[in-house]
Amino acid sequence: MKNKVTGKLIESSALQLRRTRVGEARAKVLAPDIERLNDVALAAAEDNDFNDEPARFASMLVRLKSPDSRR
């Protein structure tokens, strides 16, 4: 089930959760972009494993330094 992200949600979330004013017009502009980015994150997460530790990124770069690195 997917509900559209609305400007009202953006405006109220910013104010109530972050105590920051985001104007109505600006919130409407932000809504589709935030919805799209969030969808991309959700889609990428489909292939995440619960053991995927974000801090592995630095060591992954070192391991990827050469093609024959053991990973």
């Binding site: 935030i34 969030n38 995440n48």
Partner: peptide, 29 residues
């Protein structure tokens, strides 16, 4: 204006992107 979207993106989505980053990097490389 470039700062505001980050107020709203859920923390879980942020962390899911971070979780995916090493795997997607390895795939790309």
């Amino acid at each position: 204006a470039g700062i505001e979207p980050g107020l709203i993106i859920p923390a879980a989505s942020y962390l899911e992107a971070q979780m995916a980053r090493p795997r997607l990097t390895r795939e790309f490389v």
